[in-house]
Design a protein around this nucleic acid. Sequence first.
DNA 1: CTGAAAGCGCTTACAG
DNA 2: CTGAAAGCGCTTACAG
Lengths: 373, 373
Amino acid sequence: MRGNNCDRSPAASIRDVARAAGVSHQTVSRVINESPNVSGPTREAVLATIAQLGFRPNRAARALAGGPVQSVTVLASNTSRYGFAAALEGVEEATREVGFGMGFRAVDALSPADMRDAVEAAIEPAGALIVIAFDTAGALALECVPPEVPTVAMIQAPAAGTVPIRPSAWIDEFAAAKEATEYLLALGHKTVHHLAIPSWFSAPPPRLEGWLAALKEAGIKAPKAVLGGWTSDWGYEAGLQLAKDPSVTAVLCGNDDIALGAMGAMREAGRGVPADVSIIGFDDIPYARFFSPPLTTVRQDFKALGKVCFAKLLELSNSNRTIPGLEPPQAQLIIRESAGPPPEGPPGAHAKSSPNAGPTIDRADTTRLNTSD
Amino acid sequence: MRGNNCDRSPAASIRDVARAAGVSHQTVSRVINESPNVSGPTREAVLATIAQLGFRPNRAARALAGGPVQSVTVLASNTSRYGFAAALEGVEEATREVGFGMGFRAVDALSPADMRDAVEAAIEPAGALIVIAFDTAGALALECVPPEVPTVAMIQAPAAGTVPIRPSAWIDEFAAAKEATEYLLALGHKTVHHLAIPSWFSAPPPRLEGWLAALKEAGIKAPKAVLGGWTSDWGYEAGLQLAKDPSVTAVLCGNDDIALGAMGAMREAGRGVPADVSIIGFDDIPYARFFSPPLTTVRQDFKALGKVCFAKLLELSNSNRTIPGLEPPQAQLIIRESAGPPPEGPPGAHAKSSPNAGPTIDRADTTRLNTSD
DNA sequence: CTGAAAGCGCTTACAG
DNA sequence: CTGAAAGCGCTTACAG
């Protein structure tokens, strides 16, 4: 009583379909692989039989026989940090749409030798790889991938003035960090401090570079950036240090986790946000708008980035299918309430009129929550 | 110049190993499958050759040939919500330790017919399934799994007085919710309200049942629970409603996301947390201790639960391997600062002495952050 | 305890 | 455009 083709016999094979359709199993193979060398009527008949029998090609057999790539394994240092989880979801959705399988393997805190083993172990014979190389572990994993394995990397940015070794996708974080910094300056802050995520490969993170560029363009000598962590814990500790310096009135944080920790530190040090110190984050995690105060941050669509990576992988593989959407998503400054004019008051009417509000600034949910502070 | 066996020829097969070791390929098969029917010396020799050649069994071939289960696919409605992501990490880690592959497939918001197709599509020929059935989508997916597929479910709890259809694992959320409610009552609150996560299968969520049980035991008529969401958005809306009622002084929330939204709503309504209203969450997401105020909540170790599920799967499958750790993790009340005595003041010395502090109460990070509110 | 046989479900060439 | 052959890398029985 379960409806459609659910009382399934052992599962139809390609030969079952061939027999039922009165063709050879090779012809069935051609149909499911979208070979052009099948006549219209034959194709129709086979397709009908496939539907009727509920036939589904056996991925293991296809892989074994040397068929085209049908599955992707995502390599990443973790699954629960927002950017990683969202990217994973994007890849999953994209693979599902075209019938690919998706695997996942964590690769964290490994010595180079162990990493090589881990990466080797993660490679399925006929499989492809998407490596989330935002952090050191991911970057190392990427370096360990044998050249013949179809691979696309999700990165922070290509090294300055170079083309990435592997096909890669990234969000323009440089521009986004620059814009966020400019926003703070336009608010009237004399300078902007930066709590940076760790270095990527051997270069500084693009978020840091964008911050630097904005200060430089404004003729401001950049304060020393604080480098180092991804977590709220780290942001809290680093924030405690910054809080001691009364000249700190604006802080761009490398991500929202750091921003959350930093806001806590400021509060604890008796410095109001944004009354005394403005804080801007990066990523726009779903919780950000519920922080206290709601966090002004740079939204990054990692899910879309995940889809872009998979699209690149399809394009790259021998598959004749391609899917649209190879353009990486744009970052977007989301203005909420954690950034405002410096305590001395705005030097003009700047603060009120949302300075530097380009087309990528979204005020949609600005007034969503009001804090009672 | 890359060190160990990295300049790999096409990848060694079982026959390459057999040839090099001077045995038949079946013997190699026996060795890698840990069959007892191999003499000590033969096994040693084969093992040595395997190491030397860097042989790694082809998972697709093993699956095709009808070997034991070597990979697991996790089915879940999403990847980015904390509990789901953490559980996924637990499964990944456990699979990796024993050389299993891990796949992931999202199954959300599908009609029963589409869900059936989606689940069928996710099943690899020789694969097993772990279904995260915390929510409706997951529960539906679980129902759609053909009986012959090795499957373990992660659930909220078995239906009252029944044994789950499938091997399952869960955390005792009933007891945890009861304890959290008792904690609030002991703090002096006349009653406790509840913002519940959605119903599970056709029964109320155990978190709600535990809350109810605590009130009942205390002889308190339970206020109407507010049922319905998982998100901060929902918690915010529901919190706004509760805030209107001056008799509300304590709210147990179905998860931390809801608690975050509810705290925002209270603040917006001019009701201080915990001065006017105490809030307790559920899950202990990593951000919880950085909320403002730091959130008192019930910690659940979903990662450990993921490992338990995989252990059960191993036990269940024809594999002769088992791994320890079939005991689900215990929930734990983490006391921070979002809950305190009711505004009228504590009716006795209760509030100060951390009432009902059983061995599962952890005050370790209680003083981690102080809000300036 | 060990090897020779047959086959898992598919795919590539190779013939027509 | 279509079919008969051979094989992907492994595993089950089946013999010894």
